[in-house]
Structures are given as structure tokens and as C-alpha cells.
Simulated assay, not measured.
Amino acid sequence: MKPMCEKVIPSSNSSWRYVKYDMPQIDFNWHYHPEYEICLTLNSQGLRYVGDSIADYGDADLVLVGPNMPHTWHSSPNEDGSSQVVHVAQIPKVWIENQSADHPEMQALELMLKRSGRGIVFSKQTGIYAKSLFERMESENTFQRYILLMELFNTMLQDSDTQPLSSSFFSYGDKTDAGIDKLDRVIEFIYKNFDTPLYADDMAKLAHMSTNHFHRFFKRRTERTLTEFINQLRIGKACKLLITSNHPIAVISDKCGFNNISNFNRQFLSIKSCTPSQFRKQIRVKHLLS
């Protein structure tokens, strides 16, 4: 089966992406992307596919996968009906490689990044410690998440019980995917026009698809619906204005493309777990205390 190229969108106001999945089982989703990926799988067992490696995995499975290496996990539902949890950090290649090249303190990371081209599985002990770091990431701001990511890399570097996954001669040469070009056009359009009304029909035309096909295509490639993606982008822009400007909240709502203040407040609360006014107040309190 030919792997699908996944488009990775960094988390709001961040250079990389952190996401937590909570699901009854892990479906087979053979894919690759140009980012490094750290994946921690909890309360789950099944088969792990990385390159030409197919192996059993169990709880606290921690893996680092290099850029463009096809991979997926696959499990069945747990007998007790409990959820399976996956924490994922996806880190742009140029960003992390520049970090390690530009800072002598991080040069030890270079070798591990090179080794990850085959995929690396870490010891269960490291996986258990990584669980505590990922759980802290869930509720932290972007700066604290960056610190926790560096701590996670450092923990992985200390592990002397790592194993490569894919064979040294495996390579995935066909990385062309027409779909990624279509998605790039759409995302560029959204970023340029986020403050104006956006319609699925217009973006479907950009991608040369029917609207129904486009909705399925976008969700599969970004793991978010079109509406979720646009709202998350707009709320990210709103956060920046709440921090850097004194504009009234109603003005910020308009500047970020929301059709009314009630919808803005509702979407902000859903994504940030606080209202825009609470967010601004928290930022000002932190500034006074710093």
C-alpha cells in the first residue's frame, strides 16, 4: 500500500505540533510527513509499522520517527472498553536541525536525529517518564511546552537501551503526492484571507474537487475539519492581538473574521478554555508578576 503524505500544521503560536489522541482503538493509517515525530502510545497493544519493520508493541511505547519514514500503529479495542491514548510531537526538520546545529549544548541531539531515519524505539522506563512530560504539556503554555520538549529530547538521549526499527537499506523514494500541493494552495489561501468570510465551495474549486470530496480530503490530511482549522487559526490570531494590542474585544473579533462577538466568545472558550477577557486578564497578571 502506498503511504499517504500527511500535512502537519503546527500548534497555535508554536513552531511545532503537540496533540493528544484519546480513542477506543488505533486504526491503520499508513502515512509519512517531512517532520520528525515522537509518539508515545499508552494503554494499547497491537502492531507497530515503521518502514519495513512490523513488530508488537505494548504500553508506554515511545518511538522517534525521522522525516518521510512511513509509519502507523494498529490496535483492537481493549477488552475492558478503556481508552487508548497517544501523545504526539511533530517537529519541523529545518527548525530542530538548526537548533542542534546552532547551539553547542544541543549537538548531542544531531546523532539521535540521524539515527531516527530508521525509527528508534526507546525503553519502557523512558516511555513511562515521557508520559509525565506529555501530560504536563497538555495544560502548559507554548513556552513551557518548548522547555518540556527539550527535556523529553534530553531524556531520550540518556536512554542506553534503544533499538532501531526499519532496516538500514529501506528507503521510501516516491515522496511525490499531488494532494499535498492542493492542500498547500488551500492553506495558503486561508492564511491570507482568515479575516474575511471563507466558504468551502471556493476552497474546493482551488483544489479542483467537489465540495463533499474536499471536506473528506481536508479532514483526512489535517485531522481537523475545515471549520475547526479556520477557527483555530482565527483564535490564534486573536490571542496575539489580545497580548500585543489594547483593541476592544469586539474589534479583535472583527479583525479575526468572526461574524459576531457571541460566536467569537463561544469559539474562544471552546479552544482556549477561557473567555477573551479572562485570557487578556491572565496575560496582564503574569506580566505584572514577572
Rank of each mutant, 00 (worst) to 15 (best):
M1H: 06
M1W: 05
M4F: 01
C5V: 03
C5I: 11
C5Q: 15
C5K: 10
S12G: 11
N13P: 03
S15Q: 10
S15N: 12
R17D: 04
R17K: 15
Y18C: 08
Y21F: 11
I26V: 14
D27F: 04
N29M: 07
W30I: 09
H31I: 08
H33K: 12
E35P: 01
L40F: 02
L42G: 02
S44K: 11
S44D: 09
G46L: 04
S53W: 06
A55N: 09
A55E: 13
Y57T: 09
D59P: 07
D61Q: 14
P67H: 07
N68V: 03
N68K: 05
M69R: 14
M69S: 08
S75Y: 10
D80P: 04
H87S: 05
V88H: 02
P92H: 11
P92Q: 06
V94N: 10
I96K: 07
N98I: 03
E105K: 12
L109A: 05
M112H: 04
R118E: 11
V121R: 12
T126R: 06
I128E: 07
Y129W: 03
K131I: 04
S132H: 10
F134D: 01
R136K: 14
E138C: 14
S139E: 12
E140Q: 14
N141A: 08
N141S: 06
T142S: 14
F143Q: 13
Y146S: 13
Y146I: 02
E151F: 10
F153G: 04
N154T: 14
M156I: 11
Q158P: 01
Q158S: 13
P164Y: 13
S166P: 06
S166H: 03
A178Q: 11
K182G: 00
I187N: 01
E188V: 10
E188T: 15
Y191A: 09
T196M: 14
Y199M: 09
M203L: 15
M203V: 03
A204W: 00
A204P: 00
A204K: 00
K205S: 01
S210W: 00
N212M: 02
H213F: 05
H213P: 00
R216I: 00
F217G: 00
F217I: 00
K219N: 08
E223D: 08
E223K: 12
R224M: 15
L226P: 00
E228W: 00
E228N: 12
F229C: 13
Q232P: 02
L233V: 12
L233T: 10
R234Y: 04
R234S: 10
I235W: 01
A238D: 07
C239Q: 06
C239N: 05
C239Y: 01
K240A: 15
L241Q: 09
L242S: 02
S245P: 04
N246I: 11
V251L: 08
V251P: 01
I252S: 05
D254I: 05
F258K: 06
N259M: 13
I261L: 13
I261V: 12
S262V: 11
S262K: 13
F268H: 03
L269Q: 13
S270A: 10
S273F: 14
C274L: 12
Q278M: 08
R280A: 10
Q282W: 04
K286I: 04
L288S: 12
L288K: 15
L289W: 11
